[in-house]
Simulated scan of single mutants.
Amino acid sequence: MNRSQLRYLLEHYRTVFEEEQQFVAEFLDLVEDPLAFHRERTAGHFTASSWIVNKTRTHTLLTLHKKLNKWLQLGGHADGNDNLLEVCLNEAREESGLTSLRLVDRTIFDIDRHLIPSKGEVEEHYHYDVRFLIEAEMDESLTMSDESTELAWISFDMVEAVVNGNVSILRMLEKTSRSEIFS
């Protein structure tokens, strides 16, 4: 995937969720920015993440993010790489140690624009997060990165309590439960 393929996927991205529909135009505008995939774009930049689920769709892998102190999906900065699918898979491997990761679909699973608070010398900015659906084996051992305080498979029925109402995670959970995604 490159910048033009990302543009194509965004142009054809369809969602029933109103908040995502509002993001699409902003994401398409950002694709045109030469610094879109770089942290140096201080107003905001692309990130990529994985909604990792087990094969039977009963659990998701979440990390307690050290800097944000929130349970989140695994992911991170593009750091100049315009192949967000590659970024997503690399971040998932680095943050979990999993080798059984399998892309369910090459299309975008979810998009979200969220504000990252200032910390140290890094100013408040937006992450334009492009998310892909990934499957992994739950019996494989996990290796936590230094970006996490905890890393755990969370059962779907516990996700809402763990993420404290994080709308974007609850949206991905709802998408996972829709049968059309897997048909």
Rank of each mutant, 00 (worst) to 15 (best):
S4T: 14
Q5I: 04
Q5W: 00
L6D: 02
L9P: 00
E11V: 02
Y13M: 02
T15I: 02
E19A: 13
E20H: 08
Q21I: 08
F23C: 15
D33V: 06
D33G: 00
P34W: 08
L35P: 00
A36E: 08
F37H: 03
H38D: 12
R39M: 11
E40I: 10
R41V: 03
R41A: 07
T42W: 09
S50N: 11
W51M: 09
V53Q: 06
V53N: 05
N54D: 15
T60H: 01
L64D: 08
H65V: 02
K67T: 15
L68E: 15
Q73K: 03
H77C: 04
D79N: 15
G80C: 09
N81V: 12
N81F: 01
D82L: 07
V87I: 10
C88N: 14
N90I: 09
E94Y: 09
E95K: 14
S100H: 08
L101M: 07
R106Y: 10
D110Y: 06
I111E: 06
D112V: 04
D112T: 13
D112S: 15
L115S: 14
I116G: 00
P117A: 12
G120V: 03
G120M: 06
H125T: 06
Y126W: 13
H127T: 04
Y128V: 08
Y128F: 15
D129Q: 12
I134H: 03
E135M: 14
E135V: 09
A136Y: 02
A136I: 08
M138D: 03
M144A: 12
M144E: 07
M144K: 15
S145Q: 06
S145W: 03
D146E: 14
E147G: 00
S148Q: 12
T149M: 11
F156D: 11
D157L: 04
V159L: 05
E160G: 10
A161L: 09
V162I: 14
V163R: 05
V163C: 09
N166H: 11
V167P: 00
R171K: 11
R171I: 05
E174W: 13
S179V: 11
F182I: 03
S183G: 11
